[in-house]
């Protein structure tokens, strides 16, 4: 039986990205946040109240860490174009039995697999730390769709960087900068309230990870409401815009120069 080209590329992407370093970045770091920060801050912030509902800090943090998987997986997947271009494998694959579309699908697929896989592991870990989460069919659907949309969104963002950025130093600096801004200026680690400094509130409201974290949190903790649907629509629109931009840039990536 013939395996479609993009699935073979997905297997390859999984194979080259399951090294200890990438695994630590994908699973170890968020697990560290969940365990260490969750338990540490639990002592300082016993509970967080939103919408007249009070929950423990670990219960607040856990969905944020699950949502972060979309960003981390998008970083790994989208960043593959960067490393493949840098190490010659993009050109090597483009003279092999693949089309550009196959390569792109391979990146998107591996990002989604890593995102959903990582999220599942984080959810299991979160259950041990923060207690159980009740998921309905609708909330599960929102959870999965927000993670998939978020993953494609962040993969597209890193694809754009992979195409536009020329030097390794610039790429690494931008990646680290994005990592800090998107992760820490989002609602993943703390709630954004009227008391939050205005600058942080603005950044957080422009940060797509905030919406992914909010939808995941609604799915796992607060329940699905109108604002969840609105945020889902918002990240879908951002995802489409970024994906179209990355697609147009990707089509024009030159090989053989």
């Amino acid at each position: 039986m013939r395996i479609p080209a993009f699935i073979r590329l997905t297997f390859r992407n999984i194979s080259v990205n399951t090294d200890p370093g990438t695994m630590f970045f994908m699973l170890g770091l968020p697990a560290f946040y969940l365990l260490v920060l969750g338990i540490m801050f639990q002592g300082i912030i016993p509970s967080i109240g939103i919408n007249n509902e009070s929950i423990s800090y670990t219960k607040f943090l856990a969905p944020g860490i699950v949502g972060m998987q979309a960003f981390t997986a998008g970083n790994i997947g989208g960043g593959m174009l960067w490393s493949d271009r840098r190490w010659g494998m993009f050109e090597q694959l483009m003279v092999g039995p693949f089309r550009r579309t196959d390569y792109l699908l391979g990146i998107i697929s591996v990002s989604i697999i890593f995102s959903l896989g990582g999220s599942a592991i984080m959810m299991v870990l979160a259950t041990f730390i923060a207690g159980g989460f009740s998921l309905s069919v609708l909330s599960s659907l929102y959870l999965v769709l927000s993670l998939v949309a978020g993953t494609i969104l962040f993969s597209s963002l890193f694809l754009i960087l992979s195409i536009l950025v020329r030097t390794m130093q610039a790429y690494n600096t931008l990646t680290i900068l994005l990592f800090f801004i998107l992760d820490f200026a989002s609602t993943a680690f703390y709630p954004i309230t009227s008391e939050t400094p205005e600058a942080l509130r603005i950044i957080s409201s422009l940060n797509p990870l905030s919406y992914v974290a909010n939808i995941v949190r609604d799915s796992m903790v607060y329940g699905i409401g109108l604002s969840t649907a609105y945020q889902m629509l918002l990240i879908t629109v951002i995802m489409v815009v970024l994906f179209v931009i990355s697609l147009r840039l990707y089509k024009n990536v030159q090989t053989g120069l």
């Binding site: 590329l9 080259v16 190490w87 090597q92 003279v95």
Partner: peptide, 26 residues
Amino acid sequence: GVVQQEEAFDFTTVENNFKIYGMLWE
């Protein structure tokens, strides 16, 4: 088959490079 002048590798082990390449070529 193409052996380019520039280096082109998957950054894994020597053995895995063969295995991955074989899988890619079915």
